[in-house]
Simulated assay, not measured.
Amino acid sequence: MARSRRARVDDVHELASGMPHVTVVHGSSGNPVYQVGGRSFVFFRTPRPDAKDPETGERYADVIVFWVESESDKIALVQDDSTPFFTTAHFDGHPSVLLRASRIGELGRDELAEIVQDAWLAQASKRRRDTWLAEHGG
């Protein structure tokens, strides 16, 4: 099977907003936060001191946060050297992974779609999750 085209930041917006029952709120800096049932599942993070360039110390201004189902899912993503996902101490114990927008092209669009869908599933209500999975053969 051929790999899908490289993912783009626009794909995050398209995929997240395309999931059912999604609302978009904006953080204090205008950054988009995608929510299902009032629970965030993907958001564009403002620069923070815990995510910075190790050489220059400059804070990353392009971090996207994706919820995951479990700690084991998180570990699998961040420890896999073939993925651009990472975490920081600030997110210890938090069911999410981080991705710099500048590295999103390391993922195929299909891979990104799966990450966004899994993030939505991790935060959706049981009823919404079950309905979506039934409709999508999950």
Rank of each mutant, 00 (worst) to 15 (best):
V36D: 06
V36Y: 11
G27C: 03
R48T: 13
A51W: 01
D73S: 15
E55R: 12
E58Q: 05
I64V: 01
V65E: 11
L77M: 14
Q35H: 02
F66I: 02
K52M: 09
V33G: 04
R39W: 07
T46Q: 11
F41D: 04
E71K: 12
S28P: 07
I64Y: 00
S70N: 09
E69V: 05
F43H: 14
D62R: 02
V65L: 11
Q79A: 09
V42R: 03
S72H: 11
A61I: 00
K52R: 15
W67V: 03
Q79D: 13
F44N: 07
S29D: 12
W67E: 10
P47K: 07
L77W: 03
W67H: 11
P54N: 07
S72F: 03
V33E: 11
P47L: 09
K74Q: 15
T23N: 14
S70E: 10
H26D: 07
F44R: 13
T23D: 15
A51C: 10
H26C: 04
V24K: 05
E58T: 05
V78T: 15
V63S: 03
K74D: 09
S29P: 00
A76H: 07
G27I: 03
S28H: 11
V36S: 08
E69G: 09
P49W: 06
F66W: 06
V22Q: 06
R48Y: 06
G27R: 02
T46G: 05
K74F: 08
G30T: 13
D73A: 06
P47Q: 10
V42M: 03
W67N: 11
Q35L: 10
Y60M: 02
S40D: 12
Y34C: 01
E71D: 03
T46E: 14
R45H: 06
E71H: 09
T23L: 09
G57T: 08
W67Q: 14
G57W: 06
Q35A: 09
S28K: 10
F44L: 13
Y34V: 05
D73T: 05
Y60V: 01
P49I: 06
P54R: 13
S70Y: 04
V33C: 12
Y34D: 05
S70M: 09
D62N: 02
V65I: 12
G37F: 10
S40V: 06
V78H: 07
G30K: 08
T56R: 01
R48I: 10
H26Y: 15
R39A: 12
S70G: 06
A51M: 03
Y60H: 13
P32N: 08
G30D: 13
V78G: 04
A61K: 04
R45E: 15
T46F: 01
I64L: 00
P47A: 08
W67D: 12
E55D: 14
D53V: 02
E58V: 06
E69I: 01
F66N: 02
R59A: 07
L77N: 07
